[in-house]
Computed example of a mutant assay.
Amino acid sequence: MPTTFTLIDLAGSIALLLLGTQMAQTGMQRAFGAGLQSLLARSLHDRGRAFIAGMGSAAVLQSGSATGSMTTGLAAEGRVNLVPALAVMLGTNVGATLIVQVLSFDVAAVSPALILVGVLMFRRTSNTRAHDLGRAFIGLGLMLFALHELLDLMTDYEDAPSLRVLLGAASTVPLVDVLLAASLSWAADSNVAAVLLVASLCARNVVPPDTAFALVLGANLGAAIKPVLESAVPDDPASRRLPVGNLLILLIGATLVLGALGPIGRFMVSMDADNGRVVADFHTLFNVVLAVLFLPLLSPYANLLGHLMPALIKVTRGRTARPYLRRTSNVRRECAGRQGQYS
Rank of each mutant, 00 (worst) to 15 (best):
M1V: 14
T4M: 15
T4R: 15
T4S: 15
F5D: 15
L10Y: 13
G12C: 14
A15V: 14
L16K: 07
G20I: 07
G20D: 08
T21W: 00
Q25A: 14
Q29P: 00
R30M: 07
F32W: 08
G35M: 05
L36K: 08
L39M: 14
L39P: 00
R42P: 04
R42M: 11
S43M: 13
R47W: 07
R47V: 03
A50L: 12
T72G: 02
T72Y: 00
L82N: 11
V83E: 15
P84E: 07
P84D: 09
A85G: 11
L86C: 10
A87H: 11
V88G: 06
L90S: 10
L90D: 10
G91I: 08
S104P: 09
V107N: 06
V110M: 12
P112S: 05
L116F: 10
L116N: 04
V117C: 11
V119K: 04
V119D: 04
V119I: 14
M121G: 03
T125D: 03
S126K: 12
A136G: 04
F137V: 01
M143R: 04
E149G: 14
E149M: 14
M154R: 09
T155P: 02
E158F: 06
D159Q: 13
A160Y: 13
S162N: 10
L167C: 03
G168T: 01
P174Q: 01
V178H: 05
S185W: 07
W186K: 05
A187I: 13
A188K: 09
A188L: 09
D189K: 12
V192R: 06
A194F: 09
A194M: 15
V195E: 10
L197T: 12
V198W: 02
S200P: 10
S200N: 12
R204F: 00
N205I: 01
V206E: 10
V207L: 14
D210W: 02
V216A: 10
G218S: 06
L221C: 06
G222F: 03
A224S: 13
I225S: 11
K226L: 14
P227N: 12
P227L: 10
P227D: 12
E230C: 11
P234E: 07
D235K: 07
A238I: 08
R240H: 05
G245Y: 03
G245R: 03
N246I: 00
L250N: 11
G253L: 03
G253M: 05
T255D: 02
L256Y: 02
V257Y: 06
G262V: 07
R266T: 12
M271E: 08
A273L: 10
D274N: 15
N275L: 13
N275H: 15
G276T: 05
D281P: 02
F282N: 09
F282Q: 09
L285V: 14
F286Q: 13
A291E: 08
L293I: 15
F294K: 07
P296Q: 13
L297I: 13
L297N: 10
L298V: 10
S299N: 10
H307W: 07
L308E: 03
M309R: 10
P310K: 01
A311V: 06
V315M: 03
R319W: 07
T320H: 05
P323I: 00
Y324L: 02
R326N: 00
R326A: 01
R327T: 00
C335E: 09
G337N: 03
G337H: 04
R338G: 00
G340W: 06
S343Y: 02
